[in-house]
């Protein structure tokens, strides 16, 4: 694992600043849509009561995110103008392939949890990833056997603890 702190491995650069600005804008954008489509919320600003209303902090936060996003984007543009490259502060795109695949399979797992039940869905997920992470693209009977074993035991253990002891109604 990464022994040192994340912020030290790669310093912020033009690329990561522009991305951070976009990230903040994305949140602000979704927030603004939520605010502007909510009539009751906007109407609360007009209310005569001493309570400033539920829109006050929402507006402060949305403006904060919008202005903050602008500032961070500006810092990225500044760095780019001073000769920084768009790659600066970012990792190679291929780095993200495996995490992306992992998330996709997790979403699949969540979708299939109810139709398949916890044990089968989690079993397939576990076995596949155990094999993929240990054997990679190679064919290996030993790794396959270990992956299958893990695929059975790990979900069973979780089922025992959460459904058995903690009485959580896991889908089955």
């Amino acid at each position: 694992m990464h022994a040192d702190d994340a912020s030290d491995t790669i310093a912020p650069g033009a690329g990561s600043d522009l991305l951070a600005g976009g990230f903040l804008f994305a949140w602000a954008g979704v927030g603004w849509i939520g605010y502007l489509t909510n009539e009751r919320l906007r109407a609360s600003l007009e209310s005569p009561s001493p309570d400033p209303g539920p829109a006050l902090l929402a507006l402060i936060v949305l403006w904060g995110l919008t202005l903050g996003g602008t500032a961070v984007t500006a810092s990225g543009v500044w760095r780019r103008a001073r000769g920084g490259r768009l790659r600066d502060g970012l990792e190679d795109a291929r780095t993200h392939l495996r995490p992306a695949a992992f998330v996709v399979t997790l979403i699949l797992l969540a979708v299939l949890l109810r139709p398949l039940g916890f044990l089968p869905a989690a079993g397939v997920f576990t076995a596949c990833w155990l094999y993929g992470l240990t054997a990679g693209a190679r064919l290996s009977l030993r790794h396959a056997a270990l992956a299958l074993l893990g695929g059975v035991l790990l979900p069973l253990g979780l089922q025992l603890v959460f459904a058995g002891l903690l009485l959580v109604p896991l889908p089955r």
């Binding site: 997790l106 989690a122 959460f162």
Partner: peptide, 12 residues
């Protein structure tokens, strides 16, 4: 094994 187990734990 650790990463798969943590991911499953997060879900459950």
């Amino acid at each position: 094994l650790l990463f798969t187990a943590i991911a499953l734990l997060c879900v459950v």
